[in-house]
Simulated scan of single mutants.
Amino acid sequence: MQFGKVNNPGAIDFSLPEDHPGTAKVLAAKKNKKEFEVYVGCAKWNRTDLKGFYPPGTKDELKYYATQFNAIELNATFYKMPDWKQVDTWKNKTPQGFRFFPKLTNTITHYKRLIDVKQEVSVFCDAVSNFEDRLGMAFLQLHDNFKPVHFDRLKQVLEDFPKGIPLGVEVRNEEWFSSKAVNDQYCALLEKQGMTNILVDTAGRRDMLHMRLTGTTAFIRYVGANHPTDVARLDAWVQRIKKWRTEGLQQLYFFVHQNVELESPLLAAHFIRSMNSTFGLNLKIPDKAGEQGALF
């Protein structure tokens, strides 16, 4: 993942910002004793990107991947509109408890830029609904140059979005974060629609680390920099998640990216170990991650 890549990650202050005041409020308002649901995965299952992760002779990468992780951030649906047959094929390669997190197709977000996309959204949602119990949450990622001046387009799409499909939203343009009034309006819309405000932790865009949850679900896209700081950053996330859990966090969706994806399973394995230890969980630690060698 090249978004937010910098030439010298060692010069970046990777400390997590303080929580937005709205986060504690929204967690407290919906706090209950529900079991903590945690899903951790990588961005893709491609053998080329995850070199060394698959045992020799692996014939079906997704089928093996799904024995090692309980979730996948599904970027394939961003580049091509899925159909129900493809979704059915993917679903049937995974065990119960596995979750897919499909990204809305770029026709909707980047080419048509949310203009007159009701039919495309319907086609997408009809397809991914076939994941059935394997569907985690769809997510809508807007182009870097999609600005708050087009807020009404986004509002209309979110209000019309099928209620049976959970949705996270990722805005990228700096103007969504630089204006308090704009950000408050945006977050209020997500809260009203019961949608998740996606957090992105990447070196070159620290403004996207807004620490503003809009519900009891945290959807975090973590982008490592292939640098020794990556591990400490993950440890800091575990501590912040611990705080959120005491305040009422119910679901965590955490996806590990890298500028060079080779080390993603290693970083994910480190994060899973820390989560298991901190929360008394029993998440699977990927087998081959331990055989790839030490990080850095």
Rank of each mutant, 00 (worst) to 15 (best):
Q292H: 10
K5L: 11
M275G: 02
N282L: 08
N46T: 14
F255H: 11
L262P: 08
N197M: 02
G136V: 08
T58P: 08
P9R: 04
K242L: 14
V169F: 02
A232M: 11
L114G: 12
A43G: 15
W90N: 00
K31N: 12
D126W: 00
L140P: 07
P286C: 09
D207E: 12
E120T: 03
I198K: 00
L140Q: 09
K31H: 09
Y79M: 05
L16Q: 03
Q2T: 12
F36S: 06
M195Q: 08
A71N: 02
F53C: 06
A218E: 12
L16W: 02
N276Q: 08
W237Y: 12
R212Q: 03
D49I: 04
H270S: 04
K103A: 04
M211D: 03
W176C: 01
K51P: 03
I241T: 10
L167P: 04
K5V: 14
S122E: 13
V149T: 11
K30P: 03
M195D: 00
F139D: 05
V38K: 03
K242G: 14
K63G: 02
D207L: 07
V223P: 09
P82F: 00
G224A: 09
A269F: 01
L190F: 02
V238Q: 05
S179F: 05
D116V: 05
F53T: 06
F177V: 00
Q258A: 14
E18I: 03
V223N: 11
A66N: 06
V171F: 02
R273L: 09
G4Q: 12
F131E: 01
L189S: 02
R233V: 06
Q156D: 15
R245H: 15
P95T: 00
F254D: 05
W84V: 15
L135D: 01
A138N: 06
Q2G: 15
K180W: 06
Q185C: 11
C42V: 06
P286L: 04
W244N: 10
K112H: 15
K30Y: 13
D230H: 12
I198S: 02
L252Q: 09
F100S: 06
G224I: 05
Q156F: 13
K155V: 09
C187R: 08
A71D: 05
E170A: 01
N106C: 10
C125K: 01
N46V: 12
Y186W: 01
Y65Q: 00
K288P: 05
M195V: 01
T214L: 07
K243F: 08
F78S: 05
G136S: 09
F279T: 03
T77I: 07
D201V: 06
L140M: 15
K59Q: 02
D13K: 09
Q185T: 13
W176A: 05
R99F: 04
K91W: 01
Q251Y: 13
A218W: 12
G41N: 00
K44H: 11
T217Q: 08
V6K: 11
E159R: 13
W176E: 04
R47T: 09
G224M: 09
F161Y: 07
K25Q: 15
T278G: 01
M275H: 05
S129V: 03
D126R: 07
A218S: 14
I108S: 07
F14T: 11
F296H: 13
R233K: 15
R47A: 12
P82W: 03
E61Q: 10
Y222C: 10
D116S: 10
A218G: 12
D160C: 13
I241F: 13
P82S: 00
R205I: 08
F219Q: 07
K147G: 11
Q156C: 11
